[in-house]
Simulated assay, not measured.
Amino acid sequence: MSLFHLGLIINPLAGLGGPAALKGSDGVAAEALALGATPRAAERTRIALECLRPVASRLQFLTFAGPMGADLLAELGYAHRVVGSAGDGPTCAEHTRQAVQLLQEAGCALILFAGGDGTARDVCSAAREDQPVLGIPAGVKIHSGVYAISPRAAGEMARRLVEGGLVRLASGEVRDIDEAALREGKVSARWYGELCVPVEGEFMQHVKQAGMESEELVLVDLADWLQESWEDGVRYVFGPGSTLHGLAANLGLETTLLGVDVIENGVVIARDVTEAQLFELVDRQPTRLLVTAIGGQGHIIGRGNQQISPRVLRAIGLEHLRVVATKRKLATLEGRPLLVDSGDPALDESFPDALRVWAGYKEELLYPLGWGGQNT
């Protein structure tokens, strides 16, 4: 039986800026490491590769040396061939582009790559129009439609392909935002091109969509409701996004648009916290967590809010999580479920099948929830 050749590229620096509250990792990897962030891309890739165990005997991976793929494949025992190396220094965008060129020249049926929108841009700049690729989400911001909804979904998609299942191919948009502007609270997204990706609705992420309406009146109503229900001595964690930022503004609170903030007794006690700072603030403290859904995608955990890590979620308790989203925002999901991708599959699986969503003044909706290990 001939071997199925899969390419693998890991951006070892992807996702470092999330737990450190840096709104991305482009150009700030050293700063993130100094703040105590730990590389996570390899662990996200490990989750995807574990799904390929049943077809391991039929696979040969082609990859780059060291942390860009070979180290993890050797650890997991997968047959692989190294086609290039980034050398002894830190990896960079040029290494990703070189890897794409070498892998497609070697005839990879599919190139798996782990990273965020910056990595997708690098892949897009080097990949041929007809080269199938598939992203394993490992970055802080993931607006592009070339990523699976979770690492496990990426692995399941690749396994389906190896097993001979029918997998449609289509064009996926590559989008990225200016991280320097993002750190100043400005969101400026650009289209950078398209990649050939396998498409199955339950596995692939949709392109992030901007809001379709002014939420001003709804946020006023929600602020009134929340103000009536504040609990003394309880800490409220506000996740990132314009919905929660607007909600806080209607409460007279100054929060960060794209950061995570903590409020107690009607006062902001910590702004734009890191994952470590957030854990200290919520550990063994009565806490409520408010997050919103990304319009068009549905992610509530694991996209742009990596400060809300698995240990933070466990410390707060899933029963104390509330989603804040207007009915118009939920309508952009077109019936698809909300999604969680915390990086901890066991935790993701422990979420309930549906979540309570605050949609207006004393108006709660029950909305279905999915995670990357399910056929959603």
Rank of each mutant, 00 (worst) to 15 (best):
L365A: 06
A325G: 11
I301Q: 14
N305P: 06
R311S: 15
L281K: 10
S342I: 05
I294Y: 01
L281G: 04
L289W: 03
G302E: 11
A346P: 04
Q277K: 02
E364I: 01
D283K: 11
H299F: 15
V273C: 10
H320M: 07
I294A: 15
L369K: 04
A270D: 06
A325I: 06
R284W: 00
T332E: 13
T326H: 13
R336H: 08
G372K: 03
G317L: 08
E319F: 05
A293P: 09
R314F: 05
V282K: 04
L366N: 00
D272G: 11
E334T: 08
L321T: 08
E349T: 07
V282W: 02
E319Y: 03
K329C: 13
L369C: 03
L355Q: 02
L365Q: 05
S309K: 05
L355K: 04
E319T: 11
V291Q: 12
D341H: 04
D272L: 00
I301M: 12
F279V: 01
P352L: 01
R336L: 09
H320E: 14
G295V: 09
A331R: 14
L289Q: 05
N305Y: 07
L290M: 11
D344H: 08
G335Y: 08
Y361A: 02
L290E: 06
R322W: 05
G295K: 12
R336Y: 03
V282H: 01
T326F: 08
L321K: 14
R284I: 00
T326I: 07
P352T: 04
R288Y: 03
T287L: 08
L313Y: 07
V291S: 13
L321Y: 07
V282P: 01
P368T: 02
V273E: 09
S309T: 12
E364A: 04
W371K: 00
L369P: 01
Q297T: 13
S342P: 02
F279K: 11
A276F: 03
L313P: 03
R314G: 11
Q306W: 10
E349L: 13
A346E: 14
V282Q: 03
T287S: 15
I316T: 11
V268K: 10
A359R: 09
G372F: 01
G317E: 10
N305G: 13
Q277V: 00
I269Q: 09
A270N: 03
I294G: 02
F279A: 13
A359K: 06
A359P: 08
R336P: 00
Q306N: 12
Q306R: 13
G296L: 11
R288N: 04
P352R: 00
R284T: 04
